[in-house]
Computed example of a mutant assay.
Amino acid sequence: MELIRSAATGDDGTRRPPEVRAAATGALTAGAGWLGVVLLGVLAAMAVPRASAGFGEALGSGSLLWLVLGGARLHVGEGTVALTPLLGTLLLVVLARVGSRRGLPDEPSLREQSAWLGGYAAVALLAALLGLLSPAAPTLLSLLLPLLVVPAVGLAWAHGLPEQVTEQWARAPLAVRRGLVPGAKGAALLVALGSVLVLVATVAHIGRVAHIQSALDAGFFGGLLLVLVQVALLPNLGIWALSFAAGPGFSTTGGAMTTWSGAEAGLMPMVPVLAAQPQPGDLMWVTHLLVLLPVGAGVWIGREALDYVPRLAATQAKLAAVAAAVLVAALAVALLDALAGGSLGALRLSHLGAPAPLLGLVLVAELALGAFAAVARDWWVLRR
């Protein structure tokens, strides 16, 4: 952060053009995130007892890991790695926000923002080239996410949306504008509830998880990196658990599904936290009660949406705002699931996680059940 600040300051007589300073701070912001991930990767590769990768391959793999955190997909042999740790993506967005706030003026011009994005994208492109040192290779289209989308989100979070976008948003239907924030909060609540389920399952089966962790024999730094990756995957697994609670369930390998009715047997990836999932066989009937989690979240979303509508507004206006919030929440979770991906290779590892389209549709129904119950209660209270 000090490097970013120093790139934006200088003596009055030697001050660089604002676009050059903006590009430099954008490059430093990307470089800060890249360096942290690469250092962990190189240390892990050098310290793991059974690792055979050289420095160049470790450098390339660390660069690709940084791109994966931003949403990139990788080709590995005949398979594809499309499992983006959502917590890592969030950290990169936060870093982009901090870097753009420290490296740009309070009200940057469009040229300065474009230069900042250009500097960030240049470093990300260099990281993609370094990734060629590893056996994997990023897919070209997916590079748009770590190169442009992630820094653009952080930039918009720090300095707001462009004026043209703000003007178009002001023309959107009132119900959509009222339901956006409650829906986004509801999506965050749903992922948080799923993450809590994962933590509870991990604590309940900590013995199995620790056994897989120790069996990998990754050493200190390799084990540390493995733990960090699993922490970064917590929101991903939270979406899987949410899908289990909502009904569609999730898949581990080879199409083996875990739903209310039971868990199917399948060869699991060597990710220790996956040992916390239910064992193959029928599950108890009480697992059906987990559906109360999304329904309860729907009640909360409905009450949040009603706060954005005047108390004495027409019932139709309240219903429209609540419906918009429900749709936003379900769509946001489905999009997060799509971003998180669901592949760690080919064949049996090609389809992992929750089915995003089906999960979105089921969440619309369950959230609506709870949200409209909140509207009905509000109507009854006013009627009395």
Rank of each mutant, 00 (worst) to 15 (best):
Q279K: 10
Q279T: 14
P280M: 09
G281M: 07
G281R: 02
D282M: 15
D282C: 10
L283C: 02
L283P: 01
V286S: 14
V286I: 15
T287A: 12
T287L: 11
H288I: 13
L290D: 01
V291S: 12
V291A: 13
V291G: 10
V291Q: 05
L292A: 15
L292H: 07
L293M: 11
V295D: 02
G296E: 06
G296S: 10
G296K: 01
A297E: 07
A297V: 12
G298F: 09
V299A: 08
V299P: 02
V299R: 04
W300N: 03
W300R: 08
G302K: 01
R303C: 04
E304R: 13
E304V: 14
E304I: 08
L306D: 01
Y308E: 14
V309M: 04
V309I: 04
V309Q: 03
V309D: 05
R311W: 09
A313S: 15
A313M: 02
T315F: 04
Q316I: 14
K318W: 03
L319S: 09
L319T: 03
A320L: 15
A320F: 03
A320V: 05
A321E: 02
A321N: 03
V322A: 05
V322I: 04
V322N: 08
A323S: 13
A323V: 06
A324R: 00
A325Q: 02
A325H: 01
V326F: 01
V328F: 09
A329D: 09
A330S: 12
A334F: 04
A334K: 00
D337E: 12
D337G: 13
L339C: 11
A340L: 12
G341R: 06
G341W: 02
G342T: 12
G342P: 06
G342Y: 02
S343A: 14
S343K: 05
S343F: 06
L344D: 01
G345H: 10
A346K: 15
L347V: 15
R348N: 13
R348Y: 13
R348L: 15
L349H: 05
L349G: 04
H351G: 01
H351L: 13
H351Y: 10
G353E: 06
G353Y: 08
G353Q: 05
